[in-house]
């Protein structure tokens, strides 16, 4: 799999801009190498459980399969204790993936594949590298307060928007690895927090259509809703369901699901 095959257009364009800025990559990679990456590596080893073929054989096997499909170097996998279903990835030189205990317990094997494929999608697209800049800005905001917020606010809003788009790219990676139905089912579990899901796995897609209709009722609704999500790092669940549903109708998805790579027009 190649990053360009799964990248959401807005994500791809933003990364193009990042790469065109002289020194941006260098600053981000230095900040990552000597700052956050080492910091988190220590934290993971200190506080989290490292997944190996011996202690969690099924989880480890699932990761091996996903990594083989996505075509990246295998990241280290950790489990942390949390009742909230969540997972994250970080690092550029030696990326790692951390999943919550609740996620491992509540997701079946296919759904866990989906979650791991999502995280591997971030690794494939090198999102961590550029996410570092967002972290720096957020922390600068904490340090310098109002001044930093005033100066960085437009950048922060733009980076948060990119962060939401990067999640859509990772969602595409997950859907390409496990298929759309499993993806939608995993998303439903994440949204509800429940172990067992009843009914149509595509119910979030339908809900998204209802949300779009609601949002389009008036200008005020649009403004209110846009303001509500402006600082979110992740897109809304129904938006993720709908965006991936639309992408799953594409030629690119069909090519990826079909398996062996064929020559593309571009």
């Amino acid at each position: 799999m190649e990053a360009r095959e799964i990248m959401h257009p807005s994500d791809a364009k933003t990364i193009q801009v990042f790469r065109s800025l002289k020194g941006f990559d260098l600053v981000a990679s230095i900040a990552l190498r000597y700052g956050y990456e080492r910091l988190y590596r220590g934290e993971n080893l200190g506080e989290l459980i490292k997944v190996t073929d011996e202690n969690f054989p099924e989880v480890a096997r699932t990761l091996h399969e996903v990594v083989a499909r996505v075509g990246i170097e295998e990241p280290r996998l950790f489990i942390y204790n949390s009742p909230q279903m969540n997972a994250y990835t970080f690092g550029n030189e030696a990326p790692f993936v951390a999943v919550s205990s609740s996620m491992v317990e509540k997701m079946d094997r296919q759904e866990l594949r989906c979650i791991l494929a999502h995280e591997c999608g971030h690794v494939l697209c090198q999102h961590s590298l550029y996410l570092t800049i967002l972290h720096i800005m957020e922390e600068a905001g904490d340090l310098f307060g109002l001044l930093s917020d005033t100066v960085f606010l437009p950048c922060l809003i733009a980076l948060r928007y990119w962060s939401r788009c990067s999640e859509l790219s990772a969602d595409r990676c997950a859907a390409a690895v496990v298929g759309e139905e499993t993806f939608q089912r995993a998303l439903l579990k994440l949204t509800s927090g429940l172990e067992k899901i009843q009914g149509d796995p595509y119910q979030l897609v339908r809900q998204a259509a209802e949300y779009e209709k609601f949002q389009g009722e008036s200008v005020w609704d649009k403004v209110q809703q846009a303001g509500r999500i402006a600082f979110n790092t992740h897109p809304q669940m129904c938006e993720r369901a709908l965006e991936t549903h639309c992408w799953c109708k594409s030629w690119q998805y069909r090519q990826l699901i079909a398996g062996p790579k064929k020559e593309t027009a571009l």
Partner: peptide
């Protein structure tokens, strides 16, 4: 991708 294009995000394009 051109930074100012809108086509590739459209459902009709994907389909």
């Amino acid at each position: 991708l051109r930074l100012t294009e809108h086509l590739t995000s459209k459902e009709v394009y994907l389909e």
